[in-house]
């Protein structure tokens, strides 16, 4: 195979030689749909650096015009709870009704609460 494949070389083969999927770091993408709305997690993608990630995010998640702002964050920068944490982290609230505001009756006569 010559150094520079010509047009007859299947582009798929060239592509595989350039950047096998998974070599680039993964980034998480957050999109904002309106002024004042929260940035919400839209998905993830591969990119070489932050600018590249921003461009890929634009093309993958914002190309149909429903986005006004984008954040990209290296996935490695996110610390997540693990499935094993689910019990200790999230269960204790479930059986303690007094942790919820609905548990408390508002005394008669209190206004503007």
């Amino acid at each position: 195979m010559s150094d520079r494949p010509d047009a007859t070389t299947p582009v798929g083969e060239q592509a595989a030689a350039i950047a096998p999927d998974g070599q680039w770091p993964v980034w998480e993408v957050f999109t904002q749909s309106a002024q004042g709305a929260p940035h919400e997690h839209a998905g993830s993608l591969h990119a070489t650096d932050a600018e590249h990630a921003l461009q890929n995010a634009r093309d993958v998640y914002a190309r149909r015009g429903e986005v006004i702002s984008l954040w990209v964050v290296p996935s490695a920068a996110i610390t997540a709870s693990s499935p094993g944490d689910a019990g200790p982290f999230f269960d204790p609230g479930a059986d303690k009704a007094y942790r919820h505001p609905q548990f408390y009756k508002v005394p008669r006569g209190v206004r503007g609460l």
Partner: peptide, 16 residues
């Protein structure tokens, strides 16, 4: 290039 770009993200970018 559609369906042949080096990675998925670039495939979408070029099609875009």
């Amino acid at each position: 290039w559609c369906g042949h770009a080096p990675i998925l993200e670039e495939d979408i970018a070029l099609a875009n």
